[in-house]
Amino acid sequence: MSGAAVRAAGTRAMRAARGLAAALLLGALLHPAAARADACDGGATTIPSCQPQVQAPVAYTGWETQGWAYYCTGDHPYYWGASSYILGNFSSNNSCFSVAEDVFAENQANKFDATLTNWCLNDQSIVITLGCSQQPPPGFPATCNITGDPVGDPGCTTTNITNHCSSTNPPVCFQTSSETCGDGTSYSCTTDLAVTWCFKCGS
């Protein structure tokens, strides 16, 4: 083989390698997984005291749509969702499904609402995981300007007890209240499943 032919073959190989590298880079940038958020991933916003809560699986037939309301619960009952301009604070485990968050149906601070469609032709099951926080999301009418980390129930005088229940059957509920201690310190508290925790009120 002549030197010119060897050089031409080398140039072709280099071009092919560059093309492959560019395609791989483009693929990595455009792949949906690269931009997909996850439970407790608030993007530019840090979701405080966030805990992923795995929901029970739901079965679908092929080509079927269901609407579900999922709730954060226990000592992390608050869902920071699209109402707080946080998108994708959830994950799903099955690529057969599209999941569309219905922000206007998220009328409770513990609620994630979505329309889910199984686009595969056979029966499928999906598990949703929510990013759930101990702290109320921005915009939730807290009883005061909360500061610092959550603390246990200080056991002081309780006022403003409010039950927050969904209009579903069965209802899903949590409770908020205010506590004021003898030294004048006040707290904003949440109770769910018989557990109470509070945030100290700032000025």
């Binding site: 609407g67 309301a69 999922y70 619960t73 969904s166």
Partner: peptide, 17 residues
């Protein structure tokens, strides 16, 4: 007993074949 429910179904329909 009172169930511990964390998800409720709102609607169900088929994707038109």
């Amino acid at each position: 007993g009172v169930p511990k429910v964390t998800a409720t179904l709102r609607h169900r329909s088929g994707v038109p074949s």
